[in-house]
């Protein structure tokens, strides 16, 4: 029962990706009902699938990350009319669900220290923070592409189909500002969980390093935007640099400690 909803979500995310890419291949843009309906149906199936797995290990976390990315894509399109976000979130979510299925999803065991609800909340908020950081990266990339198009006076598909610069900048701002408290709460819950339930449970130093690093990166990005009033291209570069650093540090830690099962 875990597999079927995930496969359904995978198919619908694939369809949503194809619909998002179609105008760039010279095809007529799909109706908005379809570009919203496909990911929304996929997310509904996905929620059913995710509800049946315990968020322990890499595969469930990848699946939850994919779900949040799709939900953020829907919100971006509905609230900000930024349908171009799907160009990134669509393939990313499809790939993440595919990877999670390859690694192997299944109803997992409860965390060793108990306190399941606390643990689930920790994972959910942390992954939401990460998804919002990814959204900030995506909007920054879209911003820079549209910026280049406008500056170089190329009036092609990017010019036509991407949202206005200011809207992308605003979406980037919102993603970072919403992501920071989510990740902060996730980290605090992890600390509380470790103290209250896990007792002598072993926590990988890599987990602590990566979690702290991600929190610092997101915090710095928010500080630059909110306190230093960075906006536009400078803020976009900062978002991209931050997200790339988070991914690279994760890969480095993963390579340094192969076989670590608990590290995400």
């Amino acid at each position: 029962m875990v597999l079927v909803p995930h496969l359904l979500a995978l198919g619908l995310y694939g369809l949503a990706t194809a619909l998002a890419l179609a105008p760039f291949a010279g095809l007529r843009p799909a109706p908005r009902a379809l570009t919203l309906g496909a990911p929304l149906s996929g997310a509904t199936a996905h929620v059913v699938g995710v509800a049946q797995v315990t968020p322990v290990g890499v595969a469930p976390v990848l699946s939850i990350l994919a779900l949040f990315l799709v939900l953020l894509q829907i919100v971006s399109e509905r609230v900000f009319r930024a349908s171009a976000v799907a160009l990134f979130t669509g393939p990313l979510a499809t790939g993440l669900v595919g990877l999670a299925l390859l690694i192997g999803l299944g109803p997992g065991a409860a965390p060793s220290g108990g306190g399941n609800a606390w643990f689930i909340l920790h994972v959910t908020l942390s992954v939401l923070g990460l998804a919002l950081l990814a959204l900030a990266f995506i909007t920054a990339a879209l911003y820079l592409l549209q910026f280049r198009e406008l500056k170089s006076k190329r009036f092609g598909q990017v010019f036509r189909l991407f949202p206005p610069l200011e809207r992308l900048d605003r979406l980037n701002h919102v993603a970072l500002v919403a992501g920071f408290p989510a990740l902060t709460l996730g980290v605090l819950l992890a600390l509380g969980y470790a103290v209250r339930y896990a007792g002598g449970m072993h926590v990988d130093p890599a987990q602590i390093v990566w979690g702290s690093f991600t929190w610092v990166v997101l915090g710095s990005a928010v500080w630059m935007r909110v306190v230093r009033h960075w906006a536009g291209r400078r803020a976009a570069f900062a978002s991209i640099a931050g997200f790339v650093a988070v991914v690279l540090v994760y890969l480095a830690l993963k390579l340094a400690e192969p076989g670590t099962q608990r590290f995400l």
């Binding site: 406008l150 010019f159 036509r160 991407f162 206005p164 610069l165 200011e166 809207r167």
Partner: peptide, 18 residues
């Protein structure tokens, strides 16, 4: 799309400001 020069001016401004 914007098929005249004045409406193209609007379209360009519209791609900068939300």
């Amino acid at each position: 799309g914007a098929a005249s020069a004045p409406s193209a001016a609007v379209a360009l401004a519209d791609k900068i400001f939300s």
